[in-house]
Amino acid sequence: MSRICLIRGSQPRAGRRIHRSGLAKKKGGIGRHVTKTVNRTVYPNLQEKRIWVPELGGFVKMKLSCKALRTISKNGAYNTLKAAGLL
């Protein structure tokens, strides 16, 4: 199952976690230092939704990011789907 938003095209991307060691100066240490970075994957916030499209007279089932849901709320389902090339 792909983790890609159908409207925005959001997909998993690479990122890093920073590992720090040491005690903060304000707590009596010599300061915090970055000792290593660890690769990780950042996933989009995807939801599987049924969207009612009045112009089509029915529901459309899609996997969307939450930001795409806000776009649909703002611009309407039919206009958003048409702009994304899904209709």
Results as ranks from 00 to 15, higher is better:
68 A>Y: 11
42 V>T: 05
39 N>H: 04
62 M>F: 12
52 W>L: 14
63 K>T: 15
32 R>A: 01
26 K>F: 10
56 L>K: 08
83 A>N: 10
72 I>Y: 06
79 N>S: 14
43 Y>P: 10
37 T>M: 09
8 R>N: 02
30 I>H: 13
15 G>P: 05
25 K>S: 04
67 K>N: 15
6 L>E: 13
84 A>D: 08
44 P>Q: 10
28 G>Q: 01
87 L>A: 07
71 T>Q: 12
2 S>V: 04
60 V>H: 08
2 S>I: 03
21 S>Q: 13
5 C>G: 00
56 L>M: 09
42 V>P: 01
47 Q>P: 04
10 S>C: 09
6 L>Y: 04
72 I>F: 07
24 A>Q: 06
2 S>G: 02
69 L>P: 04
34 V>P: 04
28 G>S: 01
16 R>Q: 00
27 K>T: 05
69 L>M: 13
14 A>N: 11
83 A>H: 07
36 K>T: 05
12 P>W: 00
67 K>M: 14
82 K>T: 09
15 G>H: 04
30 I>A: 12
72 I>W: 05
12 P>E: 00
48 E>Q: 15
56 L>N: 06
24 A>E: 05
1 M>D: 04
80 T>C: 04
39 N>T: 02
65 S>R: 12
37 T>K: 13
35 T>E: 12
78 Y>N: 07
13 R>T: 09
76 G>A: 05
83 A>T: 11
63 K>E: 14
48 E>W: 14
64 L>W: 05
56 L>D: 12
52 W>N: 12
10 S>Y: 07
74 K>Y: 14
23 L>D: 06
26 K>H: 13
